[in-house]
Structure formats: structure tokens, C-alpha cells
Computed example of a mutant assay.
Amino acid sequence: MSVILESEITCPNCGHKKVETMPTNACQYFYQCEGCNKVLKPKNNDCCVYCSYGTVPCPPIQNNKSCCKN
């Protein structure tokens, strides 16, 4: 199975959505919403903002590997 590198992040504060390309060599712990400027952090037990707010989990999780937080 190939890894999907694009994920649409939805801000839980204002609902703004944007498709972003996920990094393959690091976890993205912070993300600033372009709609309301709120800085998003992962929810509890999630490794990155893509796993918490994206339509597709980060590449390590897609590959059934642990992410950076472990």
C-alpha cells in the first residue's frame, strides 16, 4: 500500500479547512490555522496534528509504525 502524503486539516475552532502535504521525516506537532490563527496541537494520545485534525493520518501511522511521540 502506498503512503498518502496529503491530508485536509479542519480547525476545530473555526472550521477552516486546508489540504496540506505531510512531512515524511518528522511529526508536525503544531499547526497554525489560516482562518483564525489559532495554533493547533495534537489531541491526547495522538502523535501529530494530522492524526488529530486531518482526513489522513501521518505517514508513520499509515505504515503501522509508531510516530515520534512514543
Rank of each mutant, 00 (worst) to 15 (best):
P42C: 07
L40P: 01
C11K: 03
C33Q: 05
E20N: 10
P23M: 12
N25Y: 04
C47T: 05
T24K: 15
M22C: 09
Y31W: 15
N45V: 03
C36E: 12
A26E: 08
A26W: 12
Y29W: 06
E6W: 02
N13W: 04
Y29D: 08
P23V: 10
C48G: 10
V49E: 07
G15A: 09
Y50L: 13
D46R: 06
E8W: 02
V19W: 03
P23H: 14
G15F: 12
N25K: 08
E20C: 14
S7I: 00
K17W: 01
E20R: 10
M22Y: 06
Y31R: 06
Y29H: 11
G15L: 09
C48D: 13
N44F: 02
I9T: 05
Q32H: 01
K43T: 14
C36K: 09
K43P: 10
A26Y: 14
V49L: 12
C48W: 08
K41L: 09
C48F: 06
K18F: 00
N37R: 07
N13Y: 11
C47H: 09
T24Q: 15
T10D: 04
T24C: 03
E20A: 09
S7L: 01
Y29C: 03
Q28W: 03
V49K: 11
E34N: 14
K17I: 00
N45G: 01
N37P: 00
C33W: 09
E34R: 12
E34M: 06
C27A: 11
A26R: 15
V49H: 05
V39T: 15
E6D: 10
K38N: 10
S7E: 05
